[in-house]
């Protein structure tokens, strides 16, 4: 399992893993699409959808979190860039930073959640709270999944499993991680700024 798989010739020329990852991400688009569509239609159409005051939402902290996540995204892509140039150290360093930033995101979130509860915004308080905690919670689960995937890649990277020509799994982990980032980029304005 630790040896990189040899990539068989495929009809499309795209490795199975990569195509599979994109197909999976397409289904994730539909999943989040279903949630976000529900949010949008209820937000505009519901007769009872109170929006908390901006001060209660903690925009500065959420902005910081956005920065954390896009920075982690760039370090992830730099990790892939490093191994494609046969730079093992660069791969390990950038992956480690990515994982660290992922934990950082979760830490800020776990500070934010009790803060919101304290202000009376809970999952059952009203529709805003319900959607906020459901969607950010689901995104948080995806972050945890992404961190786990990245740690698996990091362990293998330290063992030296990836080479310039065999770094597909780094790319797959990257695709997933960027997607998590991408979802946050949409969630951030619709929950905090609008």
């Amino acid at each position: 399992m630790n040896q990189p798989e040899t990539i068989e010739e495929t009809v499309t020329g795209i490795p199975n893993g990569k195509l599979g990852m994109w197909v999976f991400l397409s289904s994730e688009v539909m999943l989040f699409g279903g949630f976000i569509s529900s949010y949008v239609v209820l937000r505009t159409g519901s007769g009872f959808f109170p929006i908390p005051a901006k001060e209660l939402l903690g925009i500065p902290l959420a902005t910081l979190n956005t920065f954390v996540l896009i920075t982690s995204s760039v370090t992830m892509v730099l990790a892939l860039d490093a191994i494609q140039k046969a730079n093992q150290k660069g791969l390990i360093r950038n992956l480690a930073i990515t994982i660290l930033l992922g934990f950082c995101f979760l830490a800020i979130k776990s500070y934010e959640y009790p803060h919101k509860w304290h202000e009376g915004i809970t999952i059952s308080s009203n529709l805003f709270g319900s959607f906020y905690f459901t969607l950010t919670g689901l995104h948080g689960l995806h972050v945890i999944g992404g961190i786990a995937f990245n740690i698996y890649i990091l362990v293998n990277a330290i063992k030296g499993c990836y080479t310039q020509d065999h770094c597909e799994r780094v790319e797959y982990a990257g695709l997933y991680w960027h997607f998590v980032d991408l979802v946050w980029v949409i969630l951030f304005p619709i929950f905090y700024l609008l």
Binding site: S26, M30, S130, T134
Partner: peptide
Amino acid sequence: LLFAFPVLQAGAILQLLDRIAKTSF
């Protein structure tokens, strides 16, 4: 299946939360 099922997954999660977490989607 790929494109349609995740939307029911979303709906099922929302309904589950309505039951167990007292949300009111």
